[in-house]
Design a protein around this nucleic acid. Structure first.
Lengths: 124, 124
DNA sequence: TAGAATCGATTACAAGTGTAGTCAATGGTA
DNA sequence: TACCATTGACTACACTTGTAATCGATTCTA
């Protein structure tokens, strides 16, 4: 059952990472208003995420409250590694280079990057 | 026709980015030996990529030679932006942080990152 | 208490994806 | 020349994804 989280499903994960234990209707309500997807669609996606093992459904009366079974951080880490591996042989620099093209990065982003680099070099 | 390049198709793009103008059999031969996909499969994927406009097929006798119509760099840039946007609100630092987790980055990668940061700060 | 709203479950269905078989034409070879 | 290999075209087919309708049960409300 360890299929991947689809693009459209990720939006729901994101909502539930912000606040775990929401019912389907609440998840629907929390999506951007311009989202367009109907409540039925959200329910289907939630079921699929439960099938995939990405969510746990906790019964609450006649409805379910949904909880992520993997953290946003864990997901982001493995997705990032896969992405970097697939496109850049696991390297980080080309990613940053692409994001920096055309006044890409904010000052705070740059400052964070600096801190990370400093730490990496210290650890070295 | 501007559908996205699928995961499995990306492998073929990668081969053709390394060396443009290969025939189906050559692309097949250049894939990792443990790849498993049959030559027939490769041909199907190549056709799909032509349909999608990601490859141009140049007739050469009774076969075709395939050429990417978008550069690896352009593809990587837009894929990277999409990825970063989707998972990290467009920021670069969390990506590097994830890749750095658990002795992730090589010395040369770190050096490149440093150079990029230096340049970004200079530009600032 | 009768109808309305809401819930999960089931079903639908087109498009996309991964993988490959079959076929007819062509080109190379014994 | 008679076969065999190779090529693109076409077809196949199960699975995934995106989106939603329908249905039966339950709960809220007038």
């Amino acid at each position: 059952m360890k299929r991947a989280i689809a693009r459209s499903e990720l939006d729901l994960m994101s909502v539930l990472w912000d606040q775990s234990g929401l019912a389907a209707s609440a998840v629907h309500a929390k999506l951007p208003t311009d989202d367009g997807r109907s409540l039925q669609t959200i329910k289907t996606l939630l079921s699929r995420l439960v099938d995939k093992g990405a969510l746990r459904a906790e019964r609450d009366g006649r409805r379910f409250l949904y909880h992520p079974t993997l953290s946003r951080d864990d997901y982001a880490a493995s997705a990032t590694r896969r992405f970097s591996e697939r496109l850049f042989g696991g390297r980080a620099a080309p990613i940053v280079a692409h994001l920096a093209e055309g006044d890409g990065l904010s000052d705070s982003d740059i400052a964070e990057l600096e801190a990370i680099i400093r730490e990496l070099k210290r650890r070295d």
